[in-house]
């Protein structure tokens, strides 16, 4: 007992001494520094999150009010065809986009990793689709993929098709067009993540493998991929989360409609469709938001878990 008290006193004095040597400030100084970012975080993220949870158990409207309705919103969800359609589309989106996002940017990064003349220019240009807004990208590709656009012009001139392909007018094709555009826009972003990771792969490994007679493909599979495993997991998770957050490209390419008969809607599209406007249903939209949150949180937790096993291995 006595001993514990004395260690505690010792610890307190060291801490006090360290604090005195490093800094001198009043107790409220740190909070003065923190007040704005902390207030913004609480007011526009943590509180809205709690509020979303609460509202998801009510039948609130944008005008306010709302009564506690228990699990009614969640029960409604299970029988809501649009909800299942949105989940199906968002899942399909993820399944198609994630493998492409894990592999294509890796090849791009390998392409620009070597320091050769002009490489900075190429890196920057490969990043331009990331810099441009999703609205601009959506409009640019709507023009290229439209019935009178470049792509159809090409396909028709090659006589591969007799009439324009409905890239934007067929519900299923619109979804795949949106995926293609999302991949095109995201390549540069993940390329940069891979570039940073590639810089940490020891060059000696490559040289040793080359001396052993391993070809380029073999070196890629046996040296690069294992060294980048945790980065690939990171990119896979990030792109899975953003696949579930897709909205703007779809909104623009379907001209705000969500595709013919609203057949191409994604989860976020459905949330803003349900929750917006004076006749919106805030309660139901909140329940849908919570589903989105649980899905993205699931991916984040999966990433943490995989990283931990990675560290142990």
């Amino acid at each position: 007992m006595l001993q514990r008290a004395s260690t505690r006193r010792a610890r307190v004095t060291t801490r006090a001494r360290r604090a005195r040597t490093v800094q001198r400030h009043r107790w409220w100084t740190p909070w003065l520094f923190l007040v704005v970012p902390l207030a913004v975080t609480v007011l526009f993220s943590l509180f809205p999150f709690v509020n979303t949870v609460v509202l998801s158990f009510t039948n609130a409207t944008p005008l306010g009010g709302g009564e506690f309705t228990g699990l009614a919103n969640y029960r409604e969800m299970t029988g809501d065809g649009q909800f299942w359609l949105a989940v199906r589309n968002s899942t399909l989106f993820m399944v198609v986009v994630v493998p492409l996002m894990v592999l294509l940017p890796l090849f791009l990064a390998l392409l620009v990793a070597k320091q050769i003349p002009g490489i900075a220019f190429f890196r920057a240009t490969f990043y331009t689709p990331v810099v441009a807004s999703a609205v601009v990208v959506g409009l640019v590709w709507s023009w290229a993929l439209g019935t009178q656009g470049l792509v159809n012009g090409f396909l028709e001139s090659m006589r591969w098709v007799n009439e324009p392909v409905g890239f934007l007018t067929d519900a299923q094709l619109l979804l795949f067009s949106t995926m293609a555009v999302t991949v095109w826009k995201g390549l540069g972003y993940y390329m940069v993540i891979y570039l940073a990771a590639l810089a940490n792969v020891p060059k000696e490994l490559h040289e040793a493998a080359a001396l052993d007679g391993a070809g380029a493909v073999r070196r890629f599979r046996s040296v690069t991929v294992p060294a980048l495993r945790s980065t690939m997991i990171l990119v896979g998770t990030l792109s899975a989360i953003s696949a579930f957050r897709v909205f703007t490209e779809l909104y623009v390419m379907s001209n705000g409609s969500g595709g013919p008969g609203q057949q191409s809607i994604t989860l976020v599209f459905l949330i803003q469709m349900v929750g917006r406007g004076l006749d919106g249903s805030v309660g139901y939209a909140s329940a849908l938001s919570l589903v989105l949150f649980v899905i993205t949180l699931g991916f984040s937790l999966l990433l943490l878990r995989l990283n931990r096993t990675e560290d142990r291995a």
Binding site: L43, F44, P48, F49, T52, F247, L292, F293, S300
Partner: peptide, 14 residues
């Protein structure tokens, strides 16, 4: 961990 889209409606109310 909280995507902006998931708190969109509530943020609007705030």
């Amino acid at each position: 961990l909280i995507p902006g889209e998931a708190v969109l409606i509530s943020m609007f109310l705030t």
